[in-house]
Amino acid sequence: MALSYIRSLRSMNIPKELIQMGGCRTFAVGSKSKKGGKGGAAADASKASTIIKEVKASAVVGANILKDGANPKILQDSEYSGWLWHLLDKRPALSELRRKDIESLPYEDIKRFVKLDNQARIKENNSIRAKN
Rank of each mutant, 00 (worst) to 15 (best):
M12A: 11
R25T: 14
V29H: 04
I102H: 05
G40S: 05
I51V: 09
I19P: 00
G22R: 04
G69V: 05
S127N: 12
M21E: 14
L116G: 02
A42N: 11
S81I: 06
R10S: 06
S46Q: 12
I19D: 03
R10C: 02
D109E: 04
L84T: 15
K123H: 08
L84A: 14
A48T: 01
V60D: 06
R91P: 04
G40M: 02
R10V: 01
K111D: 08
W85N: 04
N64Y: 07
P72G: 03
G30M: 03
K100W: 01
R25F: 13
D109P: 07
I14G: 06
I52A: 00
T50Y: 03
E79D: 11
R98A: 12
A57Q: 10
I102V: 14
I128T: 08
I110A: 10
G36E: 04
P92F: 09
M21R: 09
D77Q: 05
S95W: 01
K32F: 02
V114H: 02
Y5Q: 12
N125T: 03
I14K: 06
R129Y: 04
T26D: 09
K115R: 08
K100H: 01
K56A: 10
W85E: 09
D77M: 02
S46C: 14
M21D: 10
N118P: 10
Q119R: 14
D89Q: 09
G69L: 05
Q76K: 09
S49G: 00
G39W: 11
S58A: 15
G40N: 02
L3D: 07
A28Y: 05
A59F: 13
G82Q: 10
R121A: 15
S78H: 12
I65K: 05
E17N: 10
